[in-house]
């Protein structure tokens, strides 16, 4: 594996994506929404109003006042929502760099270069993965600052980052981004339309949705064991999907079987 070649491909894809207005707007607007709008909507109503004890969500942490427990529950939800960014963003980028290049017949000259299938796949995957992770990190930083500023008067200390948010940011988000890219590669071999590819790649959010609703319903406590189990599940899914995308992304397959 020659990482200089991998990096060249990733750099080129990132440069190409920067020039697609539709993708670029998504990359800029989505973090702003997640960093500013969603925290404001989620946290702000609980800051001034009194919260009744019987309205506590099932996932509220014990050992706090009702108001504090409700706010902490909302903060946990906020952290979980961040898993949707790496599920969504790479699929948009990968749809452009895989399906877009297929439609524009840009893959053949690329396949004629002395790069291995793995280098090409990894380069293109990185080109989608890095912006997604970058956007998630930037957005998360913004959200942490805003939430801590809003909640400092109530708690007297910064509530973020906590264990859950750090696990989500440094473990789940990269794993979900890999999942999303792998799904996109597979879907790219089946469709000839960028938007259709983006929509179909939406299946990447399924594990995130499952995790989110299990937490909402109070079925997950998100202790160390559960967090590790979900991480292990993501690793397994990633391994399977990456293998599938590697099988799909082969010169012979691309030129003879991709639609």
């Amino acid at each position: 594996m020659r990482f200089d070649r991998v990096w060249e491909i990733a750099k080129k894809d990132m440069a190409s994506v920067r020039r697609h207005r539709y993708v670029l707007y998504g990359l800029v607007v989505m973090p702003l929404i997640f960093a500013i709008v969603v925290p404001m909507i989620t946290i702000l109503p609980f800051l001034s109003a009194e919260v009744a004890g019987d309205n506590l969500p099932p996932f509220a942490p014990p050992g706090f006042s009702v108001k504090q427990a409700t706010i902490l529950a909302m903060v946990s939800l906020l952290s979980l929502i961040f898993m949707f960014i790496p599920a969504f963003v790479p699929s948009v980028i990968a749809s452009y760099t895989f399906v877009g290049e297929k439609i524009n017949k840009q893959l053949e000259p690329l396949l004629a270069t002395p790069t291995t299938d793995s280098e090409l796949l990894l380069g293109k995957a990185l080109g989608a993965f890095l912006p997604a992770v970058g956007v998630t990190f930037a957005s998360f930083t913004g959200m942490v600052i805003l939430v801590d500023l809003l909640t400092l008067p109530i708690f007297g200390y910064p509530v973020l980052p906590d264990l859950l948010s750090l696990v989500i940011l440094f473990v789940y988000c990269p794993l979900i981004a890999i999942l999303s890219v792998s799904v996109s590669v597979f879907i790219s071999s089946k469709v000839n339309d960028v938007r259709a590819a983006t929509q179909l790649s939406g299946v990447s959010v399924l594990p995130v949705l499952g995790f989110y609703f299990l937490f909402l319903g109070g079925l997950l406590k998100l202790d160390w064991v559960e967090l590790a189990l979900f991480a292990a599940l993501l690793v397994l899914i990633d391994a399977g999907l990456f293998y599938l995308s590697k099988m799909t992304f082969q010169r012979e397959e691309i030129l003879t079987k991709w639609k």
């Binding site: 020039r19 697609h20 893959l107 000259p109 690329l110 004629a112 002395p114 291995t116």
Partner: peptide, 21 residues
Amino acid sequence: AMKIREIVGLLPESPGLYGEL
């Protein structure tokens, strides 16, 4: 294959350039 790809140049039927670059 890799040795061959190093010594050949290919112009496919479609130019396949990156229009935005």
